[in-house]
């Protein structure tokens, strides 16, 4: 019983963080058709900005939302500086891998210079611990498990039930046709990046509440998010969300039965198998589009 509870809980928790990260990657890929390798840095920066605001004396309830909004601005600026000027180039996918990696590295080292290498921690969403099914868990983790699906559902409603969300889905499918109905395509690209950066920043705040933060804290979640989007497919945002939870459960089960040491190898094994059997991802079609 406690084994099942542990795997279930661990899977839900890790899956939530991966989903928050992967959805942003997928959103940027579907709308702009590029991979954002500074996505992990967004996560780190969100956490550090929140930490700084709390340090300045703001209560967490104010500091966290402000950090998320600041991250939206950071995402917008990054898009305008290292992605937008390259749109229309024939080899844009590769070039943007390099420019976003470069920008990420710059921000990472900037964070190291400003905040130093000493590990930091931000306040938990809710303090305290409890026991569920014989497993001790923190209320912070439970809060994340509950909040994440709500945020993802809100994103779904935004994309599927609002005019602006419709415009984002349209840009994802046909850029020329979007211009011809009068959509502001550059602004929508900025918006996709802003939403992705906010979600990553929030994931960073979640992570900084139970684990020590460092300037490189985003690289492992970025790697996992990449595995998730490859596994689940990137042609939609629901694919990566399901895949994130699946990977979360898989990881939790692996580390319970085989130990943490073997988990990455098994994870990549599953990834390679997926690529061989269904290269477009298990929940995905071959076309781009947000649905």
């Amino acid at each position: 019983m406690s084994a099942l509870a542990e795997i279930l809980f661990g899977g839900l928790f890790q899956g939530s963080l991966y989903a928050m990260m992967a959805v942003g990657l997928a959103l940027v890929w579907t709308t702009i058709g590029v991979f954002n390798f500074s996505h992990g840095v967004f996560m780190m920066l969100g956490a550090y900005i929140a930490w700084q605001l709390v340090e300045l004396g703001l209560p967490a309830a104010v500091a966290f939302p402000v950090a998320v909004v600041v991250m939206a601005g950071v995402g917008w600026i990054l898009q305008a500086s290292v992605v937008r000027p390259l749109i229309g180039r024939p080899n844009i996918v590769l070039v943007v891998v390099i420019t976003t990696l470069a920008a990420g590295s710059l921000i990472e080292n900037g964070a190291l210079t400003i905040w130093g290498p000493r590990s930091k921690q931000i306040p938990a969403l809710i303090d305290g611990n409890t026991t569920i099914g014989g497993v001790g868990v923190s209320l912070h983790q439970i809060a994340i498990i509950v909040i994440t699906p709500l945020i993802l559902a809100a994103l779904w409603v935004f994309l599927n039930r609002t005019r602006l969300g419709l415009a984002l889905r349209a840009v994802a499918q046909n850029e020329d046709a979007s211009h011809l109905v009068g959509l502001n395509v550059t602004a929508l690209y900025g918006l996709a990046f802003a939403i992705a950066a906010s979600l990553a920043g929030l994931a960073g705040i979640f992570m900084g509440g139970y684990r020590f933060m460092s300037p490189v804290m985003g690289s492992d979640p970025l790697l996992k998010a990449l595995i998730v989007v490859v596994f689940g497919g990137i042609s939609s945002i629901s694919g990566p969300i399901f895949a994130a939870y699946l990977i979360g459960f898989f990881e939790a089960a692996c580390s319970y039965y085989f130990g943490l040491y073997w988990t990455p190898a098994l994870l990549f094994g599953v990834l390679i198998l997926t690529l061989m059997v269904r290269p477009e991802g298990i929940f995905s079609s071959r076309s781009r589009g947000l649905a």
Binding site: R163, L166, A167, R169, A170, Q173, N174, A177, S178, V181, L183, S287, G289, A291
Partner: peptide, 14 residues
């Protein structure tokens, strides 16, 4: 080709 994965209603709104 327009917007293959949008509905007719969506296209009209766009």
């Amino acid at each position: 080709r327009l917007f293959p994965d949008l509905s007719i209603a969506d296209c009209m709104a766009l």
